[in-house]
């Protein structure tokens, strides 16, 4: 067998696969951010907190109502979407005419409040959430042991990512949405209710975060801090991909997951900064991001 820089290929394949799994989470979260930024021009800093709420709703459904993983997969994003719609209607919608900075500050504040509230009631150590029976166990791929659940995460997130991309870029509804961001007044003149569409978009974007939360619950501890740990990386992903670019968010999310996986083999200490190094380089060379358009 040939080694790559002293690393056996089995190890390398294993790490690449793991990178793909982490990349799926990045893709799913950055997709929601990109949709929200693209359509609403809001930098949604509460995304991580809503991801955390998605996981907590799953945990509460299981422990308070006895509803298992598959119920949570449907209900939890719905709950998060409702929370999102309320936020948009009562607060965010007042800020659209102002600078981006106000939306960022508001959502950042909301994120701190959500996290603080959950920390107060549940502590920081987190709560255990079991892997659903159907997805227990794993496959021996020869070069590594792949838990079934992780395989499921990749498949689920790829389906959702592709579905979202298709809905926005290839359907009539998506065309309305894109038109509404370009020129809301004109689109409204054609008889389309733009404010409702924007609210729905925000609800959908945060529902994606909620879904990612449910997918993450059995892998990580369901903890109030889980969103903070991830959100900064996800922001970097969106910036690298190009703010508001749907395809950019998906491709960059997966790509950076892979890159991080490789870093963990060759120089693990740097695994939490490699994404930001890439971000700095991309911003220097292509300020609008890899897939973004100059505005």
């Amino acid at each position: 067998m040939f080694d790559v820089l002293g690393v056996p290929p089995q190890v390398l394949f294993g790490q690449l696969l793991l990178g793909l799994i982490n990349g799926s989470f990045y893709a799913l979260l950055s997709l929601g951010l990109a949709v929200i930024f693209g359509m609403l021009n809001v930098i949604n800093f509460a995304h991580g907190a809503l991801y955390m709420i998605g996981a907590f709703v799953a945990w509460l459904l299981l422990n308070k109502l006895g509803l298992g993983y598959w119920w949570a997969l449907g209900l939890s994003p719905l709950v998060v979407a409702v929370v999102g719609v309320l936020l948009e209607k009562t607060m965010l919608s007042r800020l659209y005419k102002l600078d981006h900075l106000y939306g960022l500050l508001l959502t950042f504040g909301l994120a701190l409040i959500f996290e603080g509230a959950f920390r107060h009631f549940y502590g920081v150590s987190g709560q255990p959430y079991p892997i659903p029976d159907l997805l227990k166990g794993g496959q021996n791929l020869g070069f590594m042991f792949l838990p079934n659940y992780r395989g499921w995460v990749v498949v689920a997130s790829l389906i959702v990512c592709f579905g979202t991309w298709f809905a926005i870029e290839r359907t009539r509804l998506g065309a309305y949405l894109r038109a509404a961001t370009e020129n809301p007044v004109l689109v409204q003149a054609f008889g389309i209710n733009v404010p409702v569409m924007i609210t729905a978009t925000y609800g959908f974007g945060v529902a994606l975060a909620g879904l990612a939360g449910v997918l993450a619950a059995p892998i990580y501890q369901v903890s109030p801090l889980m969103g903070t740990n991830l959100i900064i990386v996800v922001f970097a992903v969106v910036v690298i991909g190009g703010m508001g670019s749907i395809l950019g968010a998906i491709v960059t999310g997966l790509g950076l997951g892979l890159l991080e996986g490789l870093t963990k083999v060759f120089y693990p200490e740097a695994s939490n900064i490699v994404v930001f190094v890439v971000m700095a380089i991309v911003l220097l060379i292509k300020p609008a991001g890899l897939f973004g358009r100059e505005r």
Binding site: Q15, G126, M144
Partner: peptide
């Protein structure tokens, strides 16, 4: 790094080493 959420990569390296014991020199979360 402190505050890592995904350990799978490090654990696979540990697994590949065929060691008897994987010692976790970290704390908390």
């Amino acid at each position: 790094p402190l505050g890592t959420s995904d350990f799978s990569s490090f654990l696979l390296q540990a697994q590949a080493s065929k060691a008897d014991v994987i010692g976790l020199a970290n704390a908390g979360g």
